[in-house]
Design a protein around this nucleic acid. Structure first.
Lengths: 220, 220
DNA sequence: TAGGATCCAGCTTTGGATCCTT
DNA sequence: AAGGATCCAAAGCTGGATCCTA
């Protein structure tokens, strides 16, 4: 599928998925694109990328580079809620000191997100209604605060206090590539070993966001 | 046992328990006080009250009225941490509007606490080191903030949003006396049924407090 | 019955581990 | 190996229920 030319076209493609089953969408797509290099049904994310025409390059750029939009498929359980937190970006403990929110991958990835919910617990998994999200100014302050808290903890060398509890909307969790890649951070007590980490959006937050993006408030 | 005359005497009695088993303490106490109205070994709290000479009256006053000290025995698990949140005081939804921190039972009960930890998961349960705690000014601000948040929620009639999630150190939890006593609160939508509630200190907080009272900071 | 403490089923969260594609 | 998504056991938390003594 070609890249959408503008947000409107992307929105139309996304809306067209609502209520349809993965199976339907996958087979319809396969029929129309028999010539192209179609990966078999593959993983959910890949299917959605292809159907919506996201660029499948390596990601230092958004999924829709021309539009500046990041694509996130998000699995929902039987009650319509995300089961898991959502990965945003990984970070290295080493460059915590030089990190700043404005230039962070987290801010860029979350600046404009197209959420594609998928009800995966139904007998025949089905797409939900898509949502474009741009954090409001107030929402961005919460994200920035979490980012600063987390990076600040690392920067002063308190890696052992960096738990997934920290952060209201964003949390830092282990991102265990092979379970043995370790990053060295230089803290007050010298070099420390630590697992690589990633920023994640709490499930509670994405749940509230999908339910009612307008009222996602500080109380979450 | 007579009431301690001053804090020093109370502290000495409390320190004398450290490391001793409940059994030892209970039988030693029984021997010395055969004449007095001794309740059988009874519950842990009662034993400690008797051994330390707390007044056993009904409690609108502190356990040591002359000293203004509240006594709290706190069970610790095998890792030395409290398993449960600690009950502080109950409250009625009806008088939330007129409630204020300064006159609250919560503030008075927590103004000066003598914590007596008991390692209950060991084969022979044993007393830990006692701790006198007076909240610092900063700590009291956290408690006050939680109190205001909780009471505020009730005062505006949002009883259904009053969950145990609210509050950093204090939380409101059901205090189900017989499971059917219900309190009526008058909110925006008229009278509402609700379980009676109590203020509790989160286990995370008492845990940090007992481990290192000086560094119990805002991050908890 | 009130104050207070303890118990506990079920749910949620954490802290990784595993898996996949590029 | 990097980027990303999903899986899962253990631990922690919530929302009561139960129990105890005065």
């Amino acid at each position: 599928m070609q890249s959408p030319r503008d947000i409107t076209e992307l929105a139309e493609r996304a809306r067209a998925l609502t209520g349809r089953t993965l199976r339907e969408v996958a087979s319809a797509f396969a029929e129309q694109h028999t010539g192209s290099r179609v990966h078999r049904k593959g993983k959910l994310g890949q299917l959605v990328e292809q159907v919506l025409g996201a660029s499948a390059g390596s990601r230092q750029v958004p999924d829709f580079p021309a539009l500046g939009v990041e694509l996130k498929t998000i699995p929902l359980d039987a009650q319509g809620r995300p089961r898991e937190s959502t990965f945003v970006a990984s970070f290295s403990l080493a460059d915590a000191e030089s990190a700043c929110w404005e230039r962070s991958a987290v801010r860029h990835k979350l600046a404009h997100v197209l959420w594609i919910p998928v009800h995966v617990d139904e007998p025949e998994p089905r797409f939900g209604a898509p949502l474009f999200w741009r954090p409001t100014h107030a929402q961005e302050q919460v994200l920035r605060g979490d980012f600063d808290d987390i990076m600040g903890m690392v920067a002063i060398g308190h890696v052992e206090e960096l738990t997934a509890h920290l952060g209201r909307w964003l949390q830092a969790r282990p991102k265990a590539a092979h379970g043995r890649v370790r990053t060295v951070a230089y803290g007050a007590e010298g070099p420390q070993l630590a697992l690589p980490r990633g920023f994640y959006l709490r499930a509670r937050v994405t749940s509230a966001l999908l339910r009612d993006p307008a009222t996602l408030a500080f109380s979450e």
